[in-house]
Structures are given as C-alpha cells and as structure tokens.
C-alpha cells in the first residue's frame, strides 16, 4: 500500500469538502473493495476520508411503501433486519449472500453502490427495484445512476447518504457465484413493482443492466416459462477464465427463471 493521509470526518459536509479540495482523495466506507485495491498497489490516493464516524448514515427506515437504507448500513445489518426481511425479503437475501460474514460486517450498501463493481450484487437490487439513490446533493433514479464499469452518476465530492427502495409486489435475486472470488458471475434480480416488471443483471457485463426482453415477457405473464425462449445476447458480455460470454448469457436465462420461480 502506498501511504496516504487519513481523515476521519464527522459529517457528510466535511467529507464532501475534503474530497472536493483534493482530486486524489478517496472516500472510504466499509473499505471492502478499496482496501484490497490499495494493498495490491492498484490505486494511489493522496488521502482517505473515512465516513465511519459520520452519525446517522447507518440505519434502516421502513414506511408503508418504501425501505430507506442509510449508506453506511452494513450488508450484515440489512441481512439481519426483520423489517427488510418483511418488506423486501429479496433484498435481505441479496445482502445475506454478499461476500462472507466478516465482509458483511464491514461492507456497506453505499460503498457497494458507489463503487459499481461489475460483479457486485447490490446494483442489481437497486436497478431492478427502481430504487432512488439519495446523495448529499440530490436524488438520482437507479436508471440514471449506473453508467459503466466502476462508473456512476456521482460527481466529485458527491456522496451517497441513503438508498430508497420502493416495496415491490414480488421480487427475488438469484446469483451464480464466480467459483474463486464468489462475486456474482451472473446475478439476476427480478421484481414486479408498481412501475412494472424490472429485471436487472449483474456480473455478466461491464456494468449492471436491465434485461428488457425478459421484462416484456414477464409483464405479459409472470412465470418462469414466460422467459423460456428468451436468449440473452452474448455481445458485450464479460468473458474470463471462469465463464465465457456464451456461458454467462446462458446463465442469465437460468438465473432469471429461477428468480421468477423463487419470487412466486
């Protein structure tokens, strides 16, 4: 790891100020992606701005139709939350299968979504549920948030403070993990929401995306066999030592069907 200066801030405003004043500074939430990256000397930030001391960024609030999760809420807390389990069980299930228990005790929803790792789980849930990303500056619809591999709509110094999930009618997440890293090789989140059916795929491509053909088919008929014949296109999908684009494309179909089945 290259050395850097470390600052533990007590407010989002303070963090934003520090980040805006130094282009090479980076915010750290749980650090589950950032610290391994630093250890391998793949990044060289001048400063780390630690959000761990900011009060009120962690926590889960549920009103009738919306689940709002503070950015610094750990995956473990989401997985264990009785309220999330009740309102959006698929989201609790997703959180319960990120990384391993020790990672879930540190990793946060805000960090995961802001990082937009192509194989992360949360982006699929955020996109499929049509969540709203709340930042210190504005509210961003999920459809406008994920821009590409490790790219989001966040501007320099803009920090996620919470994510609001509308409670869906039905939803489920199914992932086929990469055998080595256990990140999603293909993860499909399906949701039947007030705004229609949404299917989001993570792990398969450089960034999370919506599978519109499946959405259309499931809108007509919400059942696994409704998407039986829909083939995910291989173009633009990831290909690596664990899964070719062809295999990933196939798994998108399998995981989607299983997710619809699980959603009931």
């Amino acid at each position: 790891m290259y050395d850097f200066t470390y600052a533990r801030v007590s407010s989002v405003a303070d963090a934003a100020k520090q980040l805006k004043g130094d282009d090479d500074a980076k915010a750290v939430a749980g650090g589950m992606t950032l610290i391994p990256t630093l250890k391998l000397r793949l990044a060289k930030p001048s400063a780390l701005v630690d959000l761990g001391g900011v009060k009120d960024l962690a926590g889960i609030k549920v009103d009738g139709k919306t689940v709002t999760i503070g950015a610094m809420t750990t995956h473990g807390a989401v997985a264990a939350s009785a309220e999330v389990k009740k309102a959006i069980p698929a989201l609790a299930h997703l959180a319960a299968h990120i990384g391993d228990p020790a990672v879930r005790n540190r990793g946060t929803i805000g960090g995961s979504v802001a990082n937009n790792d192509p194989a992360a789980d949360y982006p699929a849930g955020v996109l499929a549920l049509g969540a709203t990303i709340v930042t210190n500056e504005r509210q961003i619809a999920a459809d406008d948030f994920f821009k590409g591999m490790f790219e989001t709509a966040l501007k320099p110094g803009e920090l996620i403070t919470a994510i609001s999930f509308p409670v869906p009618e039905k939803a489920a997440y199914m992932k086929f993990p990469n055998p080595a890293s256990r990140y999603a090789m293909v993860g499909v989140f399906v949701a039947k929401t007030a705004g229609g059916v949404r299917v989001a795929v993570t792990g398969a491509a450089p960034s999370v995306f919506r599978q519109k053909d499946m959405e259309a088919a499931l809108t007509k008929k919400w059942a696994p066999d409704a998407i039986e014949g829909i083939k995910q296109k291989q173009d633009g999908l990831n290909s690596d030592i664990h899964a070719s684009a062809e295999y990933r494309a196939h798994l998108v179909g399998v995981m989607a069907k299983r997710a619809v089945q699980a959603a009931g």
Binding site: G31, L48, A102, N105
Partner: peptide, 14 residues
C-alpha cells in the same frame, strides 16, 4: 463482530 483484520486500517479502529 468478526472482521478481517487485513482489510481494515489500524487508524479506523481508534
């Protein structure tokens, strides 16, 4: 809580 001590900075444990 169990955490991986290789993935957290010492200064974060103040």
């Amino acid at each position: 809580k169990s955490i991986k001590s290789c993935t957290i900075l010492a200064v974060q444990c103040e």
